[in-house]
Simulated assay, not measured.
Amino acid sequence: METRQVLLADAFAEEPMAGNPAGVVPEADGLADDQLAAIANELGASETAFVLGSDEADRELRFFTPEQEVDLCGHATVAAHAALYERGAVDAGQSTMATAAGVLDVEVKDDGTVWMDQGRVDLREVDLPLADAADALGIDAAALRDVGADLPPAVGDAGFPWLLVPVNYFEHLGNVAVDREAVVDLCERVDAMGLYAFTFDTLGGASTLHGRAFAPRAGIAEDPVTGTAAGAVAAHVRRQGVVDETVDPVVVEQGHFRDRPGTVRVETDGVEAWVGGRAVTTLDGTLTVPPADETDDIIEV
């Protein structure tokens, strides 16, 4: 049976068992789609990054949740490049990666910090009754008012479309009781894949925002620390003028309610975004890969 090296790395963290765990397969060339899906399901991380050769970039990355392939994943990108750098497979400096969301730049600093170019962030305000968002989160609608001078809900897409919902106080964000079906319905209505609730009321003095990410449409009940959401929400608050240029980078904290605290740094002008963070490898081993299903070229989940 064929085996491949597999890793688990905690992204947006500087110590193990924090941040967001991502699967990483450093050499995924030759694996069929159903094998990639099976590996991601076996590893069980919210996303697994598969590193492949590319004719249009320095490497290609594909991303799978345990249920489906997604165009881009920030924390898995950081995890993959940090792991590759740690093993000498990539050098410090800037390189490119091909993804389903396009060819993007990645920079690895000498200290192992990984910065990923998310490109232009697609932002659109949505006409959404606050009561519906509050019901989906299981909190009072009053908790969604008077946030950042009535910052409007929006869908922000930095490779993964998030419904961005502002919450006034940290206490209310901590008390959410998510209705999974209501979140799915809400996201389908606004053409988003997940709901990202955030507040300016933070735990860390250096932090700008605290967020929580719920993406049941992608099979993710709650994601600990989310790069695509951080990039989208940072661009949103910058574009709305709630956070001015003196706040640079925008620092997004997340994961504390999952006991996996982490930090995402975002450089953005409100149009484009770069996200950065560290990662720590927590598991390095081999996995036996099932044979490819040659009768089915398309994975339906």
Results as ranks from 00 to 15, higher is better:
99 T>V: 15
125 E>I: 11
110 D>T: 14
111 D>K: 11
95 S>G: 12
97 M>L: 12
132 D>S: 14
128 L>A: 05
94 Q>S: 15
130 L>D: 08
124 R>C: 10
133 A>H: 09
93 G>Q: 03
93 G>W: 04
133 A>K: 07
111 D>F: 08
107 E>S: 05
106 V>S: 01
135 D>L: 09
117 D>K: 06
129 P>L: 07
119 G>A: 10
135 D>K: 15
127 D>Y: 04
97 M>G: 00
129 P>E: 08
127 D>Q: 09
124 R>Y: 12
101 A>S: 14
100 A>E: 13
112 G>S: 09
115 W>Q: 06
121 V>M: 02
114 V>F: 09
126 V>R: 10
96 T>E: 01
116 M>A: 12
95 S>Y: 14
118 Q>A: 04
117 D>W: 12
99 T>I: 11
93 G>L: 01
104 L>C: 01
137 L>Q: 06
116 M>P: 02
108 V>L: 11
113 T>Q: 13
112 G>E: 07
106 V>P: 03
107 E>C: 02
131 A>Y: 02
106 V>F: 00
125 E>H: 01
118 Q>H: 13
126 V>S: 10
128 L>H: 11
131 A>Q: 02
98 A>L: 15
125 E>S: 11
122 D>L: 07
111 D>S: 11
102 G>A: 09
124 R>A: 15
103 V>K: 03
123 L>S: 11
98 A>G: 05
133 A>I: 11
107 E>Y: 01
129 P>G: 02
132 D>A: 15
133 A>L: 11
113 T>A: 13
114 V>M: 08
110 D>K: 12
123 L>Q: 13
110 D>L: 12
135 D>T: 14
119 G>W: 10
102 G>T: 03
133 A>E: 04
131 A>W: 01
134 A>S: 12
136 A>E: 07
131 A>P: 04
106 V>L: 03
119 G>T: 09
105 D>R: 12
122 D>G: 09
137 L>T: 01
106 V>K: 00
109 K>V: 01
108 V>A: 00
120 R>L: 10
137 L>I: 05
114 V>H: 06
97 M>D: 00
120 R>W: 09
115 W>I: 04
115 W>C: 06
115 W>F: 08
119 G>L: 12
105 D>L: 03
136 A>Q: 07
105 D>W: 00
131 A>D: 06
132 D>E: 14
136 A>S: 10
133 A>V: 05
137 L>A: 06
134 A>Q: 15
103 V>E: 03
135 D>M: 05
111 D>T: 02
122 D>H: 10
137 L>R: 08
101 A>D: 07
127 D>F: 12
108 V>C: 06
129 P>A: 02
93 G>T: 07
118 Q>T: 05
96 T>A: 00
107 E>L: 05
94 Q>T: 15
100 A>F: 07
122 D>C: 00
104 L>Q: 02
111 D>I: 07
